[in-house]
Nucleic acid binder design. Structure first.
Lengths: 189, 189
DNA sequence: CCACTTGAGCTATTGACATTAGCTAATTGG
DNA sequence: CCAATTAGCTAATGTCAATAGCTCAAGTGG
């Protein structure tokens, strides 16, 4: 029995790669084990079952998305920050469909790490909103609007719901432009 | 063996009720059969397996959502139509989470009924957009924007992603108001 | 360098679920 | 009232997650 040399990180990252593949089938431990050259029950030495695996993927994905958002807004403020962040958000989601879907999963109540990762995303959004002068409940409304727009667009795009023959990039750019104007307007009222 | 008297419609409707329950567990034929007082394999006399059941639910849900949207816009035009339709959309989605999720599933290519049901929703949206003077590619962009906003908001709300303590209704109303203004502005440029 | 401990990976098993095959009896139509 | 249909059944197969218990590979202390 030569050892495969797995670790928690190796297993989780392999799962991430699987769910991000273009024509990914639903994630199964059987398929994951096969890919790692190991029998299915052996995975339990490194993860605590399917739920734990999904949770790990979600926490990591949330932190990564928050990082992508934050980096895209470095040195920018106001509408430019929102635009740049939105473009990065959509790009990352398109490149990592499986992980993106995981970012939407609400944390189990009491799961501190998952909750912290979720808040990380909100924090980045808050900072961007404050750079256009929105605070308090106004900022919350704006963040919800921004998330709804981005999540909705990205999800529908990934699901193939935009069947009509028209340029999707253009639709996104126009939506984004409208959103930026709307939020800016919002800040001055 | 007294007969249970099932039909395709009875089975599908029971499944719809199950997935719309507040704390619905994932749909299984086992649970569905139990609820109908029948053994699991008996369901195959009325449906063609799990995929067929899901497809039926999706087609019916799309048609119902299209109807809800259309009825809410009767006798209205422009911003009022968009607002009314959006409120109904959100309300229906909240009341029927399982069916709503089914409306997003893209049709299998070549499935005429499912494709027709999907287009039904788009058609209603097109008519509303034309009532504010948007046509062609502009209308497509506007429809995508509207769907993204509504779908994103509704999905995040259902998923419990709006954890912050602020009134969700208010956030939706403001987002909607901004959207209406944005689209109207769009129509005149 | 060797005994010892640890634990990675294995086989075997159970239980949930979808699906298919084939039987039986309730229903229906002539 | 008989014959054809078919709703619902039991039995069996295959996939997958999960648990129990074994074994040997790999490090560690002496």
């Amino acid at each position: 029995m030569p050892r495969a040399g797995l670790t928690n990180t190796i297993v989780v990252e392999a799962a991430e790669r699987m769910i991000d593949e273009p024509d990914a089938t639903p994630l199964t431990l059987a398929a994951l084990a096969a890919r790692l050259g190991v029998r299915q029950p052996s995975l339990y030495k490194h993860i605590d079952g399917m739920d734990d695996l999904r949770r790990s993927i979600a926490v990591r994905a949330k932190l990564e998305l928050a990082g992508v958002m934050a980096r895209s807004a470095v040195g920018k403020a106001g509408g430019a920050a929102i635009t740049s962040m939105s473009l990065s958000y959509r790009k990352w989601a398109a490149a990592h469909p499986g992980r993106y879907a995981a970012t939407v999963r609400a944390p189990a109540s009491g799961d501190a790490d998952d909750e912290a990762a979720s808040i990380e995303i909100t924090k980045v959004a808050f900072e961007i909103m404050s750079s256009i002068g929105l605070q308090g409940d106004d900022a919350i409304d704006a963040i919800r609007a921004l998330r709804a727009v981005l999540h909705g667009f990205v999800t529908l795009e990934a699901g193939g719901a935009f069947g009509l023959p028209a340029d999707i990039d253009r639709s996104f750019d126009r939506l984004l432009a409208g959103l930026v104007v709307g939020l800016a307007d919002w800040a001055t009222s």
